[in-house]
Computed example of a mutant assay.
Amino acid sequence: MAKKSKRYSEIAAKVDSTKLYGLREAVDLYKEVATAKFDESLEVHIRLGVDPRHADQQVRGTIVLPHGTGITKRVLVLAVGEKVKEAEDAGADIVGGDDLIQKISTGWLDFDAVIATPDMMKSVGRLGKILGPRGLMPSAKAGTVTFDVADAIKEIKAGRVEFRVDKTAIIHNMVGKKSFEAEKLFENLKVLYRAILKARPASAKGTYVRSFYIAPTMGVGIKIDPVAASKEVAEA
């Protein structure tokens, strides 16, 4: 059995594993236990009572976090014609067409988000096996297949994130950094949780949120009471 570090043991002693915390209380505790020597993320892990194998039980959406993620995203735009200049003027980091598609097909992935205009999707489609597993494939549902590239770029730069249930019915996201004020982390977390609640599929039966944890990048998970969290979100 691996021996736990002194730091980990000290953190674990501060988190009551038998307790269900409220959102605000959990964020305050996160600030206390995020003690690594770098700017740790606040990670969110929510298990849902859905069966992702069924199309009518997919949970997916996009939100703009009011205080961003703390990460500056390198945005690539696939477009042609006048949309190239529009993308450049809006602050895209990389803009191109078939030349970039060819470059990506060889394994180049020096970007964090991809936006494509609808007329490029026929060519972009062949990148599905490369971009899909990395969560980078443009899609209309995520707002990354659009002719309104300027707004899409601005939203991503401002902190737009996508949430999506994985094959094990869990949503994994990050909503900020240790360096954020607790109130800003709390507000970001509320926005994400509210969106997940609103995205409940009509076909989902029984308990929707089965478990809800937040955690620093290198630390102990803090278990949140989903019912109490729902009330905190409703008060906003």
Rank of each mutant, 00 (worst) to 15 (best):
residue 4 K to C: 01
residue 4 K to Y: 09
residue 5 S to R: 01
residue 5 S to T: 14
residue 5 S to W: 04
residue 7 R to C: 03
residue 11 I to R: 04
residue 12 A to T: 03
residue 12 A to I: 02
residue 12 A to C: 00
residue 12 A to Q: 02
residue 13 A to C: 01
residue 13 A to K: 08
residue 14 K to H: 00
residue 17 S to Y: 01
residue 18 T to Q: 07
residue 19 K to S: 04
residue 20 L to I: 02
residue 21 Y to R: 08
residue 22 G to W: 06
residue 23 L to D: 07
residue 23 L to N: 06
residue 24 R to P: 03
residue 25 E to Y: 08
residue 26 A to L: 05
residue 26 A to C: 06
residue 27 V to Y: 07
residue 27 V to E: 05
residue 28 D to W: 04
residue 29 L to C: 10
residue 29 L to Y: 10
residue 30 Y to L: 13
residue 32 E to K: 14
residue 33 V to P: 06
residue 33 V to Y: 05
residue 34 A to Q: 07
residue 35 T to E: 13
residue 36 A to R: 12
residue 37 K to N: 15
residue 37 K to T: 13
residue 37 K to F: 11
residue 38 F to L: 11
residue 39 D to F: 11
residue 39 D to G: 10
residue 40 E to Y: 08
residue 40 E to R: 07
residue 41 S to L: 10
residue 43 E to T: 07
residue 44 V to M: 09
residue 45 H to Y: 12
residue 46 I to H: 04
residue 46 I to N: 01
residue 46 I to Y: 04
residue 47 R to T: 15
residue 47 R to F: 12
residue 49 G to Q: 11
residue 49 G to C: 12
residue 50 V to R: 10
residue 51 D to W: 09
residue 51 D to N: 15
residue 52 P to D: 15
residue 53 R to A: 13
residue 54 H to K: 15
residue 55 A to G: 13
residue 55 A to M: 15
residue 55 A to E: 15
residue 56 D to V: 12
residue 58 Q to S: 13
residue 58 Q to P: 05
residue 60 R to Q: 14
residue 60 R to Y: 13
residue 60 R to I: 14
residue 60 R to V: 14
residue 62 T to H: 07
residue 62 T to F: 04
residue 64 V to F: 05
residue 65 L to T: 10
residue 65 L to F: 09
residue 66 P to V: 01
residue 67 H to S: 03
residue 68 G to A: 06
residue 69 T to L: 04
residue 70 G to R: 09
residue 71 I to M: 10
residue 71 I to A: 12
residue 72 T to G: 14
residue 74 R to G: 09
residue 74 R to I: 09
residue 74 R to Y: 08
residue 74 R to E: 15
residue 77 V to A: 02
residue 78 L to I: 12
residue 79 A to E: 03
residue 79 A to Q: 02
residue 80 V to L: 14
residue 80 V to W: 12
residue 80 V to D: 14
residue 81 G to P: 01
residue 81 G to E: 13
residue 81 G to I: 06
residue 82 E to S: 12
residue 82 E to D: 14
residue 82 E to I: 06
residue 83 K to N: 12
residue 83 K to E: 11
residue 85 K to Q: 15
residue 86 E to T: 08
residue 86 E to W: 01
residue 87 A to G: 00
residue 88 E to G: 00
residue 88 E to C: 01
residue 91 G to Q: 08
residue 92 A to G: 04
residue 93 D to T: 00
residue 93 D to Q: 05
residue 93 D to E: 08
residue 94 I to S: 02
residue 94 I to T: 06
residue 94 I to Q: 04
residue 95 V to D: 02
residue 96 G to W: 05
residue 97 G to C: 06
residue 99 D to Q: 12
residue 100 L to G: 07
residue 100 L to E: 08
residue 100 L to R: 05
residue 102 Q to C: 02
residue 103 K to E: 11
residue 104 I to R: 02
residue 104 I to C: 06
residue 105 S to F: 11
residue 106 T to V: 10
residue 106 T to Y: 10
residue 108 W to Q: 08
residue 109 L to V: 03
residue 109 L to G: 02
residue 110 D to A: 09
residue 110 D to H: 03
